[in-house]
């Protein structure tokens, strides 16, 4: 399954809920969810711990908009909108953790 998280990990529990509940698959961070993938943030450690279980992606345009594209942590692949579509097509189901 492709899990999509669009909330900041410090503002809401969406990422934690996803990490705790989801079966192995992929996580795509979009909108304010991309803050989890920044070096030195609290989200980084949580994502690193989950890297064996999930393929990790973040939407590049959302990171650029927030001025954090140059701080993307290792282990997270930045994709564009076309890559977003490819991911949705690749997985049988997707779930948005709103």
């Amino acid at each position: 399954m492709l899990n999509i998280v669009n909330k900041s990990p410090l503002d809401r529990g969406s990422l934690d809920s996803c990490l705790q509940s989801a079966e192995p698959g992929a996580i795509l961070l979009i909108e304010d969810g991309v803050y989890a993938a920044t070096r030195g943030s609290a989200g980084e450690a949580r994502l690193k711990a989950a890297a064996g279980k999930f393929k990790l992606f973040a939407l590049g345009p959302d990171m650029e908009a927030r001025g954090i594209a140059d701080r993307a942590m290792d282990g997270v692949t930045l994709i564009d909108y076309a890559g977003f579509v490819d991911l949705v097509a690749e997985y049988n189901t997707c779930q948005s953790w709103l």
């Binding site: 345009p61 959302d62 650029e64 908009a65 927030r66 001025g67 954090i68 594209a69 140059d70 564009d80």
Partner: peptide, 9 residues
């Protein structure tokens, strides 16, 4: 945070 590049969004 400086460096907002919002063209993509």
């Amino acid at each position: 945070k400086k460096g907002h590049q919002t063209k993509g969004v």
